[in-house]
């Protein structure tokens, strides 16, 4: 392993300044579960690792009760999300995704920010944040800017972040009433698994509890970056959601995907899984919505 110097800034500004000094010889590090592996394997060899973990405030996780906006700091770990009751109850799609990342040890170390910026097609954390219409807040040498999470990714291992930019946090707008969401990582093993395919579905329905007013279908490992299957989403919106319609949407999503053969799985099977799992996740969404409706009904 190539040796490096570890720098530990106390603020985002200091971190950005450190990067400015060392430029391409430096690399940000959060949990290090991607960076350290790459350094060890010799895939990258930075002279400096800028450790963001000591910067206060980057691990905030809260919902603004007035606006309904959820804030997830970039240093929030998968374990923090997994253990949060707020996430488990109100954002099941996030819970589904993060609770199956790697292993307990990896979830304790790995952060949601690192997961996004590492930018692999299989990033489990990215799918739910895209489905929830999340926005990334970036801070860099030229100041701050916002980018929708869905537009963060350029290609494997590459994001729109400019050199020195830091991801501060992700915000998620208030969820509509009658929203259901679910994610499945389809793989061979129950842990330490990169998905063969990752499927996240979010549905919002009308008061009749069946007509879809908004659909998000997001796929991992279905192309060079995590992405939405927009034709499939369009098919669902405005129509009553049934198993048949969901299967059609799944078929569309499979068609628009760019799945490939690899050591992990074959393209035809990945397509099949998109087809099947879009339906299954869609039905899970409806179940969640119905359950919630019953609960509210009872409260009234």
């Amino acid at each position: 392993m190539k040796p490096f110097t570890l720098l530990t800034p106390a603020t985002v500004e200091e971190a950005v300044a450190m990067f400015g000094q060392h430029k391409e010889t430096a690399r940000y590090m959060a949990g290090g579960t991607d960076v350290i592996v790459k350094v060890k394997e010799g895939w990258m060899g930075p002279d400096y690792l800028i450790n963001l973990k000591q910067i206060p405030g980057l691990d905030e996780l809260h919902k603004n009760e007035n606006t309904g906006e959820l804030t997830i700091g970039s240093l929030v770990t998968h374990a923090m999300l997994e253990q949060s009751l707020l996430i488990r109850n109100e954002y099941p799609i996030i819970y589904d995704a993060v609770s199956n990342i790697g292993s307990l040890q990896v979830r304790n170390m790995g952060t949601i920010g690192g997961n996004l910026i590492n930018a692999v097609p299989s990033a489990d954390g990215a799918i739910p944040l895209i489905a929830l219409d999340g926005t990334a807040l970036l801070a860099g040498p030229a100041g701050e800017r916002s980018v929708p999470v869905k537009d963060l990714f350029v290609k494997p291992y590459e994001t729109v972040l400019t050199p020195g930019e830091i991801l501060r946090k992700i915000t998620i707008p208030a969820q509509a009433k009658r929203t259901g969401s679910a994610y499945i990582k389809f793989g061979r093993r129950a842990a330490m698994e990169l998905p063969l395919i990752g499927i996240g579905v979010l549905l919002v329905v009308d008061e009749d509890l069946v007509t879809c007013t908004r659909a998000r279908i997001c796929l991992g490992v279905a192309g060079p970056t995590p992405r939405r299957a927009q034709k499939a989403e369009d098919l669902l919106e405005g129509k009553p959601v049934t198993a048949t319609l969901l299967t059609e949407a799944g078929t569309l999503a499979a068609e628009e995907s760019q799945v490939r053969d690899s050591v992990r799985g074959q393209a035809w099977h990945r397509k099949e899984m998109i087809r099947v799992q879009v339906r299954r996740m869609g039905i899970k969404c409806l179940d969640i919505i119905n359950q919630k409706a019953q609960q509210t009904g009872r409260q009234v």
């Binding site: 292993s103 061979r188 093993r189 129950a190 842990a191 330490m192 990169l194 050591v263 992990r264």
Partner: peptide, 27 residues
């Protein structure tokens, strides 16, 4: 069900625990 040293043209394609699907404790 899951384990396989994948060899293509004599070369091992999955020389790591990520892609060699040994059962984990959770399995």
């Amino acid at each position: 069900l899951s384990e396989e040293v994948m060899i293509k043209d004599g070369q091992i394609k999955n020389p790591n625990f990520r892609d060699y699907k040994l059962f984990t404790a959770k399995d």
